[in-house]
Design a protein around this nucleic acid. Structure first.
Lengths: 211, 211
DNA sequence: TTATAACTACCTGTTTCCAGGTATTTTTCG
DNA sequence: CGAAAAATACCTGGAAACAGGTAGTTATAA
């Protein structure tokens, strides 16, 4: 059946949020909720069979990582606009979502007017943010990297072990490497995060969700 | 006007969650929503003038810390049952809320049946948890502290500076202390968190939301 | 098939951290 | 007020981290 209403899908693992969004978005001209999902996988299946104009996507789901999911959505259905809905206000997270095809980013403290505005903007293909996100993006790189640290597999592995409190000799042994090699990776990690000791390394890594 | 319905208040800074809860809880026998608030302060004012039987309290509000707010609610109105509603699944957080008078703790991924069950339990004064929380509490202290680290003002201050990458001599200078004093505080921090280096100190502190 | 990136390994110092204490002086609170 | 907690300061020695290099050996992708 043809309809002139835009088809909206919602993906969020919190039932409460799902209900809230439905309540805020029913009885609106021009928008029709065509599906609600608490996991990423069922939505992907749905998307393969049904057209979706815009999806409100919670980026922290139990079964999938938001960035990967966004990428997958755009691969299956490039015309579907992805509006990220999240609690995370990290600049790097916002940028990563945009780089992977998201049309907008909203924080969960959004007002109903903002929400409707953002959805309409997204339907027209315009990049859109909730007010709180706009403020975050307005600050020019306060202290952070606009490009989040790009780590190699080995570096991530070692970073993880460092965060567990393992020392260089312990890490070396558990990875069957020379302690000197581990020291080198450590040095590279400090350089990539532009910090000068483990304390700020761990903080930076956790801020970016890498640990 | 007298009513036999239990009076329920909701405090959550996310409009979406507020709407969702209203949708899930209207038209229920025995429960009446008497107020919704997006900040802690207005609710405290409301509570002073109006009876509330049970309050669904988001413990991460922009204007107040959940634990303090809970304590204040119980001081003003001891018969009001506080049901914490949160995203934080840390055992230590749950225990802290209970220690400060909360009647229950629920995670936001709760189902509607669970939610209603919990509210009814709470109305009868029984300690109650959502299923996900029950699981967390069932695990005997997997690795965590059942008593979250209790830091002094000075310790928090120094912890914060450490997380910014400051070294002992730098911290000493910026606080006008002897480096040896800072070392002592450092040592106490490591002991309180039961870790043996800064890496795991920062991780533990961030996991507990102290940085 | 070549660059380029990643992973590996080494060397020399210096600084900082950490473990193991002890001990005095303020605050804070019952 | 008196006791307990917090904050201050000190000491020694050893372990780990950090700065500053160099350099060979795999992957890997243009």
């Amino acid at each position: 059946m043809w309809t002139d209403k835009a088809k909206l899908a919602i993906v969020d693992d919190h039932l409460i949020v799902l209900e809230g969004l439905q309540r805020l978005l029913t009885d609106l001209d021009g928008i029709e909720i065509s599906g609600c999902f608490t996991l990423g996988a069922p939505f992907i299946s749905f998307l393969k069979e049904n057209p979706v104009d815009v999806v409100l996507l919670d980026i922290t789901l139990p079964d999938a990582n938001g960035i990967e999911l966004c990428k997958e959505i755009k691969k299956i259905s490039p015309h579907t606009h992805v509006l990220a809905l999240s609690n995370h206000s990290q600049r790097s997270m916002i940028l990563q979502m945009l780089q992977n095809g998201a049309t907008g980013y909203m924080l969960k403290n959004i007002s109903s007017e903002e929400l409707i505005t953002c959805i309409n903007e997204a339907l027209q293909g315009r990049i859109t943010f909730s007010n709180a996100v706009k403020e975050i993006m307005a600050q020019p790189t306060m202290n952070e990297f606009n490009t989040p640290a790009q780590l190699t597999k080995r570096e991530k592995e070692i970073l993880c072990l460092i965060s567990e409190g393992k020392t260089t000799p312990v890490i070396a042994e558990s990875l069957h490497l020379s302690p000197l090699t581990v020291e080198t990776h450590r040095k590279n990690l400090l350089q990539k995060f532009q910090v000068k000791n483990v304390a700020s390394l761990i903080k930076a890594a956790m801020d970016q969700g890498l640990v």
